[in-house]
Amino acid sequence: MRVLTMASQKGGSGKTSLAASLAVAAADGGETVAGIDTDPQGSLAAWGRRRQAQGLTVETAEPARVRQALDRAKASGASLAIVDTPGIFGAGVAIALQDANFVLVPVKPSILDVEAARPTVEQLQTLRKPFGLVLNQCLTSSQGRTLDAATALVRSGTLAPCMVALRADFLDAMTAGQGVTEIAPRGKAAAEVRLLWAWIAERMQETPARG
């Protein structure tokens, strides 16, 4: 089983909604997915409770008990666990990162968010965890701002080649307990998430699965 962990120094990055849609996209691609929500807000777990489709479970766990939750996921037959963490990089998040095969850091395309991502990147480099950044909630009408943010992030670490725009499909999918690939399979949001998942999956193949 491999572990994808979502991390962000700044709240409001769209981390949880992206985690939910990535979980569905991974399941569509043949993975057996287990979600683990360590954020006290419990948004990913609430999304999981709203789901009607079978085959994708979400449980809550304190950061200190993530390893036990991962053991349960593996025992249940999961091939991929997606761990959602609080929107602030603290000791609990560092604990939750210990078993990650890959860490995805969503960043909104603004100078404040780019600057806020730097401590997260520094922590991940210290922990020697494979990671990538993705520009999330990009405004399609502000391509110049997105390009400036991308230029700044390239200097910080690996940047996903596919950006994710701010689209209503994400809000609708979270409300319905679905992923964007379910609620609008032919939509632009679905295409972006599929591309992002393909990029993440390729990165994760470079790391050994959790024993």
Rank of each mutant, 00 (worst) to 15 (best):
R2I: 08
T5L: 00
A7Q: 07
A7R: 04
Q9M: 09
Q9L: 00
K10S: 02
G11N: 08
G11W: 10
G12F: 09
G12Y: 03
S13I: 04
S13P: 02
G14R: 08
K15Y: 10
K15E: 09
T16E: 04
A19P: 02
A20Y: 04
S21K: 09
A23P: 04
A23E: 05
A23H: 03
V24R: 08
A26E: 10
D28E: 15
G29K: 12
V33P: 05
D37F: 03
T38C: 13
D39F: 06
L44M: 14
A45N: 09
A45T: 09
G48A: 08
R50M: 13
R50L: 13
Q52N: 11
A53V: 12
T57D: 14
E59C: 07
E62Q: 14
E62Y: 10
P63W: 07
A64C: 00
R65C: 10
R72M: 04
S79R: 11
L80M: 06
I82G: 03
I82P: 01
T85S: 04
T85D: 02
P86T: 03
I88H: 11
F89D: 06
A91E: 15
V93Q: 05
A96T: 03
L97W: 08
Q98H: 11
Q98Y: 05
D99A: 14
D99P: 03
F102R: 02
L104C: 06
K108N: 13
K108V: 15
P109F: 02
S110H: 01
L112E: 12
D113N: 07
V114H: 03
A116F: 06
T120L: 05
V121N: 02
V121S: 07
E122L: 13
Q123F: 11
T126N: 00
R128W: 00
K129H: 06
K129T: 04
P130Y: 05
F131A: 09
F131P: 05
F131Y: 14
F131S: 05
V134N: 07
L135I: 15
T140Q: 13
S142T: 12
T146E: 12
T146I: 13
D148M: 12
A150Q: 14
R155A: 15
L159C: 03
V164A: 08
L166K: 12
D169E: 15
F170G: 01
L171E: 14
T175I: 11
A176I: 03
Q178C: 00
Q178S: 11
Q178M: 14
V180C: 01
T181S: 14
G187T: 01
K188C: 00
A191G: 11
E192I: 04
V193A: 02
R194M: 06
R194I: 06
L195P: 00
L195K: 15
W199Y: 12
A201F: 04
E202T: 15
E202N: 11
R203V: 02
M204T: 01
Q205D: 14
T207D: 09
T207A: 13
P208L: 08
A209T: 10
A209V: 11
G211P: 15
